[in-house]
Amino acid sequence: MAFVVIYTTITLTFFLIRLMPGSPIDRMRAELYQRYGATMSEAEINRQVRLYLNVKPDEPLHVQYFDYVIKTFQGDLGYSYIQGVEVSVLLADVLPWTVFLLSVAITFQYVIGILLGAMMAYTEGSRFDLSASALSTFVVSVPFYVFAFILVFFFVFQWGIFPQGGKFAAGLNPGSLAWYRSVLYHATLPVVSLVATGFGGIALSMRANSIQTLGSDYIRGARLRGLSDHRISYRYVARNAILPLYTGLLIQIGFLFGGSVILEQIFSYRGVGYLMLDSALRRDYPVMMGAFLVITIAVVVGVFVADLTYGRLDPRIETGGEGR
């Protein structure tokens, strides 16, 4: 099924290139005619279109389609006709920054959410539980981009504490201590916007899972056996309460790639999402389609890995074949 989704995405990118307003193929032809006039032959124009858009305009549509699919699976996504660089090179340059940003944010989301949810469960009904539950419910209802705009308004424009954009300060040597500090400094606001609006849902899920686990018969049996509360909390409650969060973790990794389009644009953080939207505004369609393909693959892989591995991690989950 994952392969079918990826193949369908590649097919959509092929036809979107031809259906989008402005027709990038016609647009590039017009630009070449305007720039070179009669000095460039029709064959040379077709060669340029083939090179940059990864299509063959002088061949039948079905031939173009199969050629596009084969080249895409080979990693050939064409060339950016704005920058004149291979799309795969551009994506390889920005992808690590998006992965870094989302990895840090998701780590903090789950660490804070799991710890807070466990504390809420062990103090069920207390003032702390009610206050933390209300806070978690509130932050879940706030979209991350709304909180991102608030952070930018105050911490960038009003107080000038953080920079307006970029991934690190100019003039620093990559790999130096100052460079690493600058990278973390520039990533602070994007990470905070994701963490502040994402930990609440994890905390509420952890709370519900922990309360359900605490009421299980095997927990009562462990207490009757005289096991310490610390051992029960760690070995029995925590492990079984965290397992259901595993599926959400992998799925969230995939869908945050899609959210990076908005997040990176707000903070001018040049990652995959920023590159995708910027290329769309500049009508650099090969780059846009390549970024769209990467984001789609991230979502598909996250869901696929979660579905493939969850049953192995949790023996209580049985497949249809095993349960028969």
Rank of each mutant, 00 (worst) to 15 (best):
I6P: 01
R18F: 08
G22Y: 02
I25A: 10
Y36E: 14
M40T: 14
S41E: 06
I45T: 14
N46D: 15
P60E: 01
Q64A: 07
Y79T: 02
G84Q: 13
V85K: 15
V89W: 01
V89I: 08
V99I: 15
L101Q: 07
L101E: 04
G117W: 06
G117V: 02
M120V: 03
S131H: 04
T137Y: 05
V140K: 05
L151C: 12
V152C: 06
F153I: 06
F153G: 05
Q158N: 14
G160C: 08
I161H: 06
P163L: 09
F168N: 13
F168Y: 14
F168R: 11
A169I: 06
L172H: 12
G175H: 10
A178N: 04
V183C: 11
H186D: 13
V191R: 09
V192W: 05
A196H: 00
L204Q: 12
S205Q: 13
N209M: 14
D217P: 07
L227P: 04
D229A: 13
I242F: 15
Y246M: 14
L256Y: 06
E264S: 12
Q265K: 15
R270S: 14
G273N: 05
L277R: 12
D278H: 12
S279I: 07
S279A: 13
R282E: 01
R282W: 07
P286A: 03
T296Y: 05
T296P: 03
I297A: 05
V299I: 14
V299F: 11
D307V: 00
T309M: 09
I317L: 10
G320R: 12
E322I: 00
G323V: 13
R324A: 10
